[in-house]
């Protein structure tokens, strides 16, 4: 019975990339995100969470018979 390490050939990632193409994907996506973040005064989702916390802070669960 063959051993597991006989079953595959190691894939040379760097060699594969060497035959590939250049991309600016990460830089451009990051730039897009940073640009959007600069344009908003505050994180809307954080504001929403804070708002909800205030509305729900007194709700209790887990009491008798829960």
């Amino acid at each position: 019975m063959s051993q597991p390490y006989d079953l595959i050939e190691l894939f040379d990632v760097e060699a594969a990339l060497g035959g590939g193409w250049d991309t600016r994907m990460e830089e451009e996506v990051r730039a897009e995100v940073l640009s959007e973040l600069r344009d908003v005064a505050a994180d809307a989702s954080l504001l929403r969470e804070q708002e909800d916390w205030n509305a729900l802070k007194d709700r209790m669960v887990g009491a008798e018979g829960g």
């Binding site: 990339l17 250049d22 600016r24 994907m25 990460e26 830089e27 990051r30």
Partner: peptide, 19 residues
């Protein structure tokens, strides 16, 4: 905004390269 890697079918992207 850190992408470790990405794959679509037979193609993949790592850092500033795709193949």
């Amino acid at each position: 905004c850190e992408r470790v890697y990405m794959r679509v079918g037979k193609r993949f992207w790592l850092g500033k390269k795709g193949a």
